[in-house]
Amino acid sequence: MAKKKLISAKINGEPREFACEPRQSLLEVLRDSLQLTGAKEGCNNGNCGACTVLLNGEPVVSCLVLALEAEGAEIETVEGIAAGGQLQPLQQCFLEGAALQCGVCTPGFLMTAKALLDRVPHPSEAEIRFQLAGNLCRCTGYDKIVRAVQAAAEGTNP
């Protein structure tokens, strides 16, 4: 078996080190080695977006990133977006707007939506739908998710 390698990365702002096999995905290591189980495995081949994390600020599906590729990278997961005991506005708007039912897609949606609002503070509904299309939700029909992102962008209640 290929040897484990030691990887250093900044995860949610903290320097972390972990050992991993080359074949392990970033998702597997985040969940199983670092106990960051917020990113979810929905398909393990890049089609559902439930494992979305930010890799150097870009949303990626962590099931299609080798953990080794994270060497020296900055990674942001859903566990890292609420700062100082305060929910991030997107999180608050998802709650107030009932934008989740089972909640398993929520971490992925939050990360993609955060990446979107970081770049485009006031996206149109069409932009939101286009950029979130890589995240599947089977419960909500998306209506309340899109509205929650709009509310977070506009600083209003959903």
Binding site: G46, G49, T52, L55, E58, P59, V60, V61, L64, V65, T112, A115, L116, Q131, A133, G134, N135
Partner: peptide, 9 residues
């Protein structure tokens, strides 16, 4: 090509 997450990579 794919969604945004795919396009990042």
């Amino acid at each position: 090509i794919g969604g945004w997450q795919i396009q990042s990579r």
